[in-house]
Design a protein around this nucleic acid. Structure first.
Lengths: 342, 342
DNA sequence: TTGTACGCGTTATCAC
DNA sequence: GTGATAACGCGTACAA
């Protein structure tokens, strides 16, 4: 384990003082061209790299942006993280991730880790961290929250109700009236909003809301499977499903497949998020696109701006229905009858 | 932006010297029970959190493990990163990721970032970083390389040829003889190995190798689409496809779907990796399972052991064929004929 | 057992 | 312009 080259080594090598080296590196003050050159050459020769921890100690900043995510391997959060990474790429900042796994205690633990590491700013994704905690944090550093709207905080979110409304309306326009909904966990505000959008679309089309057609999932694939099985077990009649996210739609699709129910021939299926993989699903999934990567990007740009004391107005982020091949016109009334056979 | 609480603050609050506080925190030496108590109470009261950067400067370590990945939002790397995260969870270390995007220059840049941040150890995933560079790094810190075998380095990899062999043999056992292969980029050693496994399986079954049935992709979904289109365009006859990874299999599946070719009825499909989403694919994908999460986990445990000066023998990691519903017995010779109609 | 003094590598504040 | 000198917050010899 070799010794690391320090700034002093460079100074000695270049025959100048450490301060001068620091000035050359940071452009803090004018330096004579010849000395400047000598320093740069010495840096090159010694392959010097500043010690970020020492810089941080001296300047009181870590050049690090903390990101609270729920699950790093999730395709949904993956896209957001990619957006953050991209936004930070050309800056001296680097992201550091910590996962909450959808559990309040783990989120708090993750928060502690990041604060302990003296992150300069925070991006909080879909957290269930208490408002007061966030309001406390924002006194210490720039914070941007994704997926919630909290008074006094910089928030970034989409109109979940509107997205769900459009997804459901699409099915209604195709002639479907018995539309099941696989909801997200009721503990998540966005899940509630999507459920409301679903109900609003039904109401506007004079389709009666049937509680028996709604099942709660947890945003993961297996819960989509369970949801469909539970719907079928209770004898629910439906010709379409609107899932609160793509992953549950994937699960639903498999459950239908196992029963020999074809998508979209027998049942139309709409998801939410439009994950990258959804266009390669078979059939390619109709979904309400959520600009996840852009959201991560905007959040990162926002905290960067705050760090520089600049103001920033994030671009408006909106959902958009992407129609693919998992939805189709309701076929004759026989569809409903056929479902009774399953 | 509030002032942070320092160790000295705690010392003052508890009426002891800073060194005593340090000792209590790190358990470096015995401390009188009463003082110890006072310190702990003061820490609690002030909500003190040690400054990691200062600790790092003083001790010459950052409590950070650097991870070179190719693409953070990739489902494949996501699983590995999750494994790393998990392994580090109960330790004082935290991972920090940097992406190479499959480009040598960006990998080198990522490496620079991590070294600049003084990571204590390095996990390098599927890199194309030159051997010499890695051998140079290993002099400075513990390094574990995933997906390559390099003399003098701690490496972790699976038997790609064996996995590919089994995937291909499975198809052969189902009666297929005209098996197309969507290969990974020839610049990747694992892609070459998988191609060789495919060829070996054919050879062992006396099935002639037909270069016209092999197309090179880049491990991403779109290349799977292109591969199938190119096969069909050149009039290739095949009843099964072995893709070098799941993502390309997804792409292939969509391309087939668009042509009205059904999986597995008309064409059987085998992937490689067995991503989490593959069991929710429709049809659920037969795939050669690669224990990605375990690989990340083992790599992290390994560098941790090295940091502690302990020796470590990683569990053997092997591939396993997971048979699902995208493969089926070759139906009558008509399959081949039918393909001619596409 | 406890406190003092110094060093970790850098930046910032002074003089010069 | 440039170079000493003192921080930054912590760990750790060393002395007591």
């Amino acid at each position: 384990m070799r010794e690391a080259v320090t700034l002093s080594d460079v100074a000695r090598e270049a025959g100048v003082s450490p301060s001068t080296v620091s000035r050359v590196i940071n452009g803090t003050a004018r330096v004579d061209a010849s000395k400047r050159d000598a320093v740069l050459k010495a840096i090159e020769r010694l392959n010097y790299q500043p010690n970020i921890m020492a810089q941080g100690l001296a300047q009181g900043r870590s050049l690090t942006v903390g990101v609270i995510t729920q699950e790093i391997s999730s395709p949904y959060y993956g896209e957001m993280l990619r957006g953050v990474e991209q936004a930070l790429e050309a800056t001296p900042y680097h992201p550091i991730f910590a996962s909450g796994h959808w559990r309040a205690d783990q989120e708090e633990a993750a928060l502690k880790v990041l604060v302990g590491r003296r992150v300069d700013a925070l991006v909080v994704m879909d957290s269930s961290v208490p408002e007061e905690r966030l309001l406390e944090l924002v006194k210490k550093m720039p914070v941007v929250v994704i997926g919630r709207q909290i008074e006094g905080l910089s928030c970034l979110s989409i109109d979940n109700a509107q997205g769900a409304y459009e997804g459901t309306r699409h099915l209604i326009e195709l002639g479907h009236r018995r539309i099941a909904h696989i909801a997200g966990p009721h503990s998540h505000p966005d899940a509630i909003e999507r459920l409301e959008g679903y109900r609003a679309a039904l109401q506007d089309a004079d389709v009666p809301f049937d509680p028996a057609l709604v099942v709660e999932g947890d945003y993961l694939e297996p819960s989509g499977v369970l949801a469909v099985e539970s719907l079928l077990a209770r004898g629910a009649l439906f010709t379409a499903i609107f899932a609160a996210n793509d992953q549950m739609a994937y699960g639903a699709n498999v459950a239908l497949y196992r029963r020999g129910i074809r998508v979209p021939h027998d049942v139309s299926l709409v998801g939410f998020d439009d994950l990258l993989s959804s266009s390669y699903f078979s059939p390619p999934l109709t979904s309400v696109r959520q600009p996840s990567q852009e959201m991560g990007w905007e959040a990162a740009r926002w905290v960067l701006a705050m760090l520089e004391g600049k103001s920033y107005t994030p671009r408006p982020l909106s959902t958009r229905l992407i129609v693919r091949e998992s939805t189709t016109l309701l076929r004759s009334p026989s569809s409903r009858l056929r479902l009774q056979m399953f």
